[in-house]
Amino acid sequence: MNTPVTEGAIVFRDLTKRFEDTEAVAGVNLTIPRGQICGYLGPNGAGKTTTVKMATGMLRPTSGTAVIEGFDIGESPLEAKARIGVVPETGALYENLTPREYLSLVGHLYHLNRDEAEGKAETFLELFGIADVSGRTMTSFSRGMKQKVLISAALLHNPSVLFLDEPLSGLDANTAMVLKELLRELASQGKTIFYCSHVLEVVEKVCDRIVILNDGRIIADGNVEELKDLTSAASLEGVFSELTSTGDLPDIVRAFSESVTGVKGD
């Protein structure tokens, strides 16, 4: 199991974000202990990415706070940000830089010395199998290649907290397996991981704890077994569907099928 926990590495207190008349995140309270991998699930538009953006200082909460390793992201942003690594959902990169240049830029932003940053960057790119293209600009990279660079950039400065928003997006099966194992390994070393995803099988395998968000509110919180007990579903997929689905799934599938083929079902 993970490193013993004494305090929360990530603490959200009544975290709220309102966009005009929409409440994207509505008073989320969450304490994630050090060394835990916390899966953050929810249907599209539930408020997952908005939570990550507030927790990483990209958006200011309308109210409430996010505290990273004891530093309030609103009051001590630089101290908090220095401790986190982020793989954003958008996959934004300066694509006209080469991976080596991009990682060098990131290394400098986190005050790594040049040799250390370059050494680590080379190793990461080698391990991810993209060292041979590390001198090319990323404009022609595939989604998976860019994702590898983003993951490398998130890990470069050895952060104690990781925010990963769909980190497996575009990755091939081997790299995905490596990353899943890596996350377990990093957690066992005391790193805290906030993992947003729609891929329930992966969340089920990787995460110690799962938080489900719907309409900006936490509707379930526990490990996989606890959630199954809560809903009497046999799998995480069943739990998720039971808690968040707005309609009867077979009916939806039938309606879609009829719409696609034009053939009425029974």
């Binding site: 990483t56 990209m58 940000k81 986190i84 934004a92 990169l93």
Partner: peptide, 13 residues
């Protein structure tokens, strides 16, 4: 426009 997505979560004052 990409500056925000790329830099906002990094410790840049």
């Amino acid at each position: 426009p990409d500056d925000f997505e790329i830099l906002a979560h990094r410790p840049v004052s």
